[in-house]
Design a binder for these strands. Structure first.
Lengths: 213, 213, 213, 213
DNA sequence: TATGAATGAGAATTCATTCAT
DNA sequence: AATGAATGAATTCTCATTCAT
């Protein structure tokens, strides 16, 4: 029945294999970094022949780039769902912080992939027109929120939205990225649920404490 | 006395060899991460026989740990020189932010080494009693500063010094750590002198904006 | 049928490659022992890329085990061809001795491989369910022969077949295994054809002298 | 007091170091064979600097030879204590078997060192005039015993003492040398005290069963 | 007599990638 | 679209041995 409806099965399998490779590669690169990742493990995890990876993705670097592209596409898609313009300024800031925090928390691969790419001076990213075209809506949304807050007399003047956006990302990202070493240094489990809740509370306070006049 | 002045231009200097290896290893691990680092390159850079690395440091992991230990020892030593207790609270916060920022800026290896260690879930760090004993004085100093500021009616109440310390580290670290990808995404050079100055200005403002009532 | 005759001079023959590796490994391990064997030489002798050895056999130890398994399989196969039950008891004992002697004489690799494995306390053998399942038929055959001889009044009573089997193996094995040192100590070539013939004659006499009442 | 009696201390230390090296080397070569032995471990075990091994023994092969020489010297010394000429022939044979068995049992290093040397076609032994001059008295003693037994009408005629000597060595040596593999193959611990006693009983019976008419 | 420092040659093993079908 | 076979170039690590004192 499926066969009679369309000439798709072949294509579907191909797509399925590619998706399986991409997913496995994302996990492998996320867990071991670019240099530590193994093509063999990706093939095994994806359940495909190793040769197929080269067939579809060329080589390890191109595969890494494909993973990066998908990673950025994913976060951009998630960002699209965030409608800060419909909220009052304070709530919008809260939501932005919360979204950023939870996105990183739920997508640890995002952090390790970016770290790996930064270790390599963003060589892959620089090659990708696709990613560079995927503009994050958040900076503009944040700029609007800040302007609205300023006009309402709630927020302070002269806040640079890019700087603030980076700062919000920072205080979410770093805590999660460096959690293992911080946990050892401070001698406590900074990934415990309670610690995570306290962290979100602090960063929200920090950001609001700064923007509110 | 004659004995102590004599052997200057010797090659058979164990300590010198070890330091050369350690320095070369720090650079190699910082530049390529743990998995990407090459023992061969370290030997070449250190100007010693590859075998000597194993003679003194055992294996790649132990060498990496030795590098981590030195890295932490270095920052702890720098932190010791910071006398926040002699300053008024606002100035102390400024100095802490400035110190943190400049330390990371001047020691890019600190960032990449920590990232590499975090990718590996701090496995090496967990083994090192030495590092765990090197307590940073900054958290306590910051706690004192916050308390003084609070008593003087300058600072807000209920600030957790550990959270704030991590946040200060975050906003300094992330900007530098993720500079390559951020620069591509935002389409401008975030390491340009002017951009760096603006960043320091922003983070100082952000932190003071939060702590001041 | 055409299909089966076609691909003769192919190099891409997995089984052929594996057999070539196994054969070369057997010779290398037999000649140099486990520790003295070199993977490089095995690859060269087998005419394959060194990497292929790891592809098929995992590592040196696993390869050694594969060689051991084949070695035991070979001797078990040879033992199967020995039909002691069809002979009169005295002839059967003669044949068993002769078979054992000639098998060791014709398969010097059996001796050195076993010596190597014994030096390592049989660590590889202990892992191999396969070898442990390959029961030698000889002990049971010998037990039957001894029982027949006893009933016919030819052989003495109370001979333990396992002990006798080990003794027969001993007097064949040791002479060949320790031939180099014995030759030096006794100052004559114990591998000369005449010496070998005398040895077989002696051991046959020794065993028969013991079993016959 | 010791210092005043002679100028020996220095020499004694030297001798002590040499003996420590030799002892450690014997254990190392016995446990790992020639190829598997490590100079580093020998130095560590002997508690001396690695360089000293080269100072006293030249190189690994020469050290191995020195170990072999001591090993042969030891067994020759033990053999000297065996006075078969004072016993009646049957008792003398029993004693020879028992001595051989217990010597191998108590000196496992003898077995593994000889196996290692035989793997190498006795290359070291061939170089050693010393060892070749250390004639074992046992063959001659056995010849005398056999002759006495024959004259007393107890022993059979025409027994070659060298062959019998080798056979006695065989049945003792092989059981112990190949104990690990035999234990696995037979599925029982052939080094258990009871198994050892049974073995000695069997080999005594076997030899006497042969020599007695 | 003794030793810590140093090394060249080699050892097992790994890895991304290509071949042949 | 897919795969098992095969490989060259590393890569970490080892080892007997020598250097310099």
């Amino acid at each position: 029945m499926a066969a009679s409806t369309a000439p798709l099965p072949r294509t579907r399998d191909a797509d399925k294999s590619q998706q399986a490779i991409l997913q496995a590669a994302m996990e492998e690169f996320a867990q071991h970094g670019h240099a530590g990742a193994r093509i063999d493990r990706i093939a095994e995890q994806a359940g495909v022949n190793k040769r197929l990876i080269y067939y579809y993705f060329g080589n390890k670097d191109d595969l890494f780039l494909a993973v990066l592209e998908r990673t950025y596409a994913d976060i951009r898609a998630a960002e699209q769902a965030l409608h800060l313009d419909a909220m009052d300024p304070v709530e919008a800031v809260r939501q932005l912080v919360s979204f950023t925090w939870h996105y990183y928390l739920d997508h640890p691969e995002f952090i390790t992939l970016l770290n790996s790419e930064n270790l390599h001076q963003a060589v892959h990213l620089k090659q990708s027109a696709r990613i560079q075209e995927m503009n994050s809506p958040l900076v503009q949304l944040l700029a609007d929120v800040l302007e609205r807050g300023r006009r309402e007399g709630l927020f302070r003047d002269g806040i640079d939205p890019i700087q603030l956006y980076i700062s919000i990302a920072s205080i979410c990202y770093f805590y999660l990225s460096n959690n293992p070493t911080l946990s050892v240094i401070f001698g406590r489990d900074l990934r415990a649920p309670k610690a995570l809740a306290q962290r979100l509370s602090h960063i929200t306070e920090l950001v609001l404490g700064y923007v509110l006049r």
